[in-house]
């Protein structure tokens, strides 16, 4: 199983990617799509492929991948099966940044203002959480993250409450729901460098996560630099998930769920969970994005909402399941 896991996940991802390019309000044939990809031109179908569906596909892969990867790293680092990027305030920090950009109208003047502010928000919250928990251990990091996250969420609520007009409130709400529609290559160019750099930092934690299975004390005695591991994991998450949230809005549950789906398949080894969890994260986001495009019953269902609706029951199952298996 182990040897085939990654190739199988890649195959699934490839199939979904193909469907993602073909599917939508206008269904395209594989021949048309291939021709558009190989020989991009100015006609409508070709533009739909290269300027609409392709950037959307690339973003879905990057965002899903980094969410799954960072969830796996945080669960390993905190040795807590319920850890996910949102726990440390990355998502709510990014949301607050984006809301500030929308609220004060920066977004109206400059399209990329929202993602840039969101990225800044994510980096600030994680830095504050890290500073607050500098002298403590894992638990104080979680508590600091929850506290900072709560403050950021309060800021978002306040902005909604004080919104100058219904349109501003609507815009904020829509952004918070998380979506991949109307995203362009500009968004990809903004997010990709941060997501790739964040992903690299996160992957470097793999050997330390394995040793952390035995607890922090034993991991340290085995030569693991805990401070370095924590910095890699947190800044990798802040950069990667911050940039992802910045361009798509809040997408929850992927980081929580993806590691759990692959863990039994890699025999629970925390370092080996990382890459497959990233692939499964990408599969979830891509599949959900395709589903939101095809399920048209009235207004568009936002990606973030769709994943929450599917993810919440899974979360419930997870809590019940963990209660049964944990000592």
């Amino acid at each position: 199983m182990n040897r085939w896991l990654i190739p199988l996940l890649l195959l699934a991802l490839l199939l979904l990617s193909a469907i993602s390019l073909l599917a939508g309000t206008i269904w395209l044939s594989p021949a048309e799509t291939l021709a558009a990809l190989l020989n991009p031109g100015p006609d409508l179908i070709e533009l739909a492929i290269t300027e609409v569906r392709l950037p959307r596909l690339v973003l879905a892969l990057l965002v899903g991948g980094i969410l799954g990867l960072s969830g796996a790293v945080l669960q390993g680092l905190l040795r807590n099966p319920l850890a996910e990027p949102g726990l440390l305030g990355v998502s709510s920090g990014a949301s607050l940044g984006a809301v500030i950009a929308l609220y004060y109208g920066f977004a109206a003047g400059f399209t990329l203002a929202t993602p840039l502010f969101a990225l800044l928000g994510a980096l600030s919250t994680i830095s504050i959480a890290l500073l607050l928990s500098r002298s403590g251990g894992t638990l104080s990091l979680i508590l600091a993250g929850v506290a900072v996250s709560t403050i950021a969420s309060a800021g978002v609520s306040l902005a909604l409450n004080l919104a100058p007009n219904p349109f501003a409130a609507y815009e904020i709400m829509t952004w918070l729901m998380g979506s991949l529609s109307d995203r362009s290559w500009e968004h990809v160019a903004l997010a990709a460098p941060f997501i790739l750099l964040g992903g690299l930092l996160l992957l470097l934690t793999a050997p330390a996560l394995d040793a952390l299975t035995l607890g922090e004390r034993q991991a340290e005695s085995l030569g693991v630099d805990l401070g370095r591991t924590r910095l890699l994991a947190l800044f990798g998450t802040a950069l990667g998930v911050g940039a992802a949230t910045a361009v798509t809005g809040a997408i929850v549950f992927v980081g929580l769920v993806a590691p759990h789906l692959v863990r039994p398949l890699v025999r629970h080894q925390p370092g080996a969970v990382l890459v497959p969890a990233g692939l499964v994260g990408a599969i979830i986001v891509l599949a959900a994005d395709i589903a939101t495009r095809l399920l048209r019953v009235g207004p568009e269902i936002k990606l973030g909402v769709f994943i929450s609706v599917i993810g919440a029951p899974f979360f419930l199952w997870l809590v019940l399941h963990l209660r049964k298996t944990s000592p």
């Binding site: 040795r79 050997p207 394995d210 040793a211 952390l212 299975t213 035995l214 607890g215 004390r217 034993q218 005695s221 085995l222 030569g223 693991v224 863990r263 025999r267 629970h268 080894q269 925390p270």
Partner: peptide, 29 residues
């Protein structure tokens, strides 16, 4: 880590990794 080994009080294993894997972790460094 190569020269000295250390076992804390009541050590525990947080994930369901195999016994062989736990032993291999002793070679982490």
């Amino acid at each position: 880590a190569r020269r000295r080994a250390y076992l804390p009080q009541s050590p525990r294993v947080d994930w369901a990794i195999s016994v062989e894997r736990v032993v291999a972790l002793g070679l982490t460094s």
